[in-house]
């Protein structure tokens, strides 16, 4: 890990919250279609998460890209593990893997498994 102070802030967010979404805008008012898609998936599954608005923090916005080795926003972390961005979250949701993944991680999912 680097001594980049932003990395420490990011690390403490993903250490302190089971499900963290780095996104553009807020869960209530996403400012980007890709971020909005991930918020919708998490909402359908009934998973509680912490949204971090990178638009309100330029250091996090750039820092999280190098932290995750991932060039785009949104970025989803679950129990400290990087899951992916919008395309991966959507794929995993549609195949049912995301539901199982949360269950394996011990994250409460309120929605029934999709048919």
């Amino acid at each position: 890990m680097s001594d980049n102070p932003v990395f420490q802030r990011i690390q403490s967010e993903i250490d302190g919250n089971d499900v963290v979404l780095f996104m553009k805008g807020t869960p209530v008012f996403p400012q980007c279609g890709f971020s909005s898609t991930v918020v919708q998936v998490l909402s359908i599954l009934g998973v509680k998460f912490k949204g971090i608005d990178v638009l309100s923090d330029g250091d996090i916005r750039e820092g999280v890209k190098s932290f995750s080795n991932w060039p785009t926003i949104p970025q989803l972390y679950v129990k400290g593990e990087f899951v992916g961005g919008c395309d991966i979250v959507r794929e995993m949701y549609q195949s049912g893997e995301l539901h199982d993944f949360f269950a394996q991680k011990g994250i409460a999912v309120s929605a029934p498994q999709a048919e």
């Binding site: 060039p71 992916g84 991966i88």
Partner: peptide, 18 residues
């Protein structure tokens, strides 16, 4: 993995993504 696949593609397109 999915993440690793995307990273391979992103790495090749790093210039365009930046």
């Amino acid at each position: 993995s999915r993440v690793e696949r995307h990273r391979r593609v992103n790495a090749v397109l790093a210039e365009e993504l930046a």
